[in-house]
Design a protein around this nucleic acid. Structure first.
Lengths: 123, 123
DNA sequence: CGCAAGCAATTACACGTGTAAACATAAATT
DNA sequence: AATTTATGTTTACACGTGTAATTGCTTGCG
């Protein structure tokens, strides 16, 4: 089963640094998200059930570690969108953003650099 | 309220060609999706409620037309993903796919072309 | 005119999600 | 030892979604 958006917020905390306690996660994410303790605990439990995190007892509390790698998650999500909306190809997506004027100077510079590198490693 | 994935499948039919009757939509999408009549009708009703389509009576049936433009939908979805996963920027997403070896020759060629065009229209 | 056929609208139902409140349990404090 | 405190676990509940079944309304047909 897929990871929901709220769950992904919790994963994000763990991806930045792990292991962490529920309390630490709440501290980092509660204020911005407007979540209470119970909410974070529930999300952690659902993530446990989905095998997306691992919990290791540490005295009276648990330390949570991600099992699902961020790369994996990003990959799934991005591929899903690409497949659904752009025929599974990257260029049309970039063209789309270009048409919407959503390419910054920085984006363009980085894309140039990337293409150059791909060119170089060609042989 | 956002459009769900099943609803988007119906929208896709209408984006390809509109207006259409529920029957036509079912014919186009039912087999592939494994949906019955009632399913398509329900989805259409939800889309009506969400003001994503318009229905115009035509004798005993309705003709459905999209109100939400595909561009708009694509924009929302893409921006959402970009914001959630790539800090709202396009280049990191492309880099991600590049690292996953998901850039085809064709993608690379098209990206080159796009950058060239952007360069040209610069002045 | 009464009924069948064709559509649409309403209702249904299980499951996931966001968001907790309530409950359980074990450790710390009085 | 009894009570408070800190955590985690279970239960809850409303809402969206996927997927129809059921009901309702027209309208052509016998």
């Amino acid at each position: 089963m897929a990871i929901s958006e709220a769950e992904a917020v919790v994963m994000d905390v763990l991806w930045r640094e792990a292991p962490r306690t529920a309390e630490e996660i709440l501290a980092e994410v509660g204020p911005a998200q407007g979540w209470q303790e119970g909410t974070v605990k529930s999300l952690l439990n659902r993530l446990l059930k989905k095998k997306a995190v691992h919990a290791e007892r540490d005295g009276r509390r648990y330390l949570y570690t991600p099992l699902l790698a961020r790369e994996q998650y990003v990959q799934q999500e991005s591929k899903g969108l690409l497949d659904r909306l752009f025929g599974g190809r990257v260029a049309p997506l970039v063209v789309h953003f270009s048409e919407q004027r959503k390419l910054s100077k920085k984006d363009i510079a980085e894309l140039r650099k990337l293409l150059k590198e791909l060119d170089d490693e060609q042989h």
